[in-house]
Nucleic acid binder design. Sequence first.
DNA 1: ACCTGAACACCGTTCAAGT
DNA 2: ACCTGAACACCGTTCAAGT
Lengths: 186, 186
Amino acid sequence: VPTPERTTIDQIVLAGRELLEQGGLTSLTMQAVATRVGVRAPSLYKRVRDRDALVTLVAEASIDDLRERLVAAVGDSGDPGEALIRLARALRVFAHERPAAFALTFGSGPAGVVVKPESYRRASAPVLDVAARLAGDRTALDAARLITAWANGFIMMELTGAFQLGGDVDRAFEWGVQRLVEAIRS
Amino acid sequence: VPTPERTTIDQIVLAGRELLEQGGLTSLTMQAVATRVGVRAPSLYKRVRDRDALVTLVAEASIDDLRERLVAAVGDSGDPGEALIRLARALRVFAHERPAAFALTFGSGPAGVVVKPESYRRASAPVLDVAARLAGDRTALDAARLITAWANGFIMMELTGAFQLGGDVDRAFEWGVQRLVEAIRS
DNA sequence: ACCTGAACACCGTTCAAGT
DNA sequence: ACCTGAACACCGTTCAAGT
């Protein structure tokens, strides 16, 4: 006798994202997700292989959110140097608003959580576009990686508390982007 | 009636480090540490407040290892640009040899794991020295953060698998350091 | 076809009882 | 003073039994 579905994969992922944001990765448990979608924990295994798979879906959804923000940040653009700076700032705003999601997607989470390559590729497309306009097609990839690596590293250290020598962190961020854009331009 | 100590905090931290390296953070459990030092799990709580405290000690020990490597990498130095490149490479070698330790100390682990500020400060001292010789005292801090953030971000993305556009990753790393050293020099 | 309770093997942590 | 077994409240996951 068939039974109507009492929840959906989308609801489950959404619940996971909310839990991640509210209490970090540790509070994203199968049981918490289950109660949130109005079902018992074992039922989740009809839609998801295991917890790692669910966490991976949550990470991928976060990356996609970030991608939208990056696209919006570029806008209709103008100067590619300015656009690159706006991209870096958008990434930082995202990380400050959703630190757990940022840490999950860029700082390695549990070993079993492996994000689809395509997710990363799609999110990095806007950066790559702007980098190409700034540095030319030939060095676009290197340039995109240079600024992305720096921004991710800066933000991660900021969130982790690894910046311990004082100084204005906001200013340091702006100083860094400027410097990188100049370096890429030449 | 007093009883002889059957283990020490050093043994415990060492066991934690070994477990971290072999199976990642998830396999660093109180029970696994306990069996490794020849004791039952509850006994660990005589030397350590809880698991987070132990993980923090493990992280700090790893940072201290890294610090030694950085000091060795600078050597008696010579050209500060060259020294900075050697520092970046040493960080990357460390990360490749002990990815779990790197992820734990620079990608944020569990929320309760907060590394002592002094640990970060001590490890960044060699970088700061070289940066000062390269860029002058006034911009040394900014310069040190620029290269540290980039290197950490690059390596983290490398370990996470966030580099999805192909290309030679080793070459990209070398290209990036060169570019940064030039940018800092001017 | 989906959902559930019960069960299993694991966690971290506390605490009274041993020596 | 240290160590332990037993206990508690949690996990993730499986599976037979329900509808």
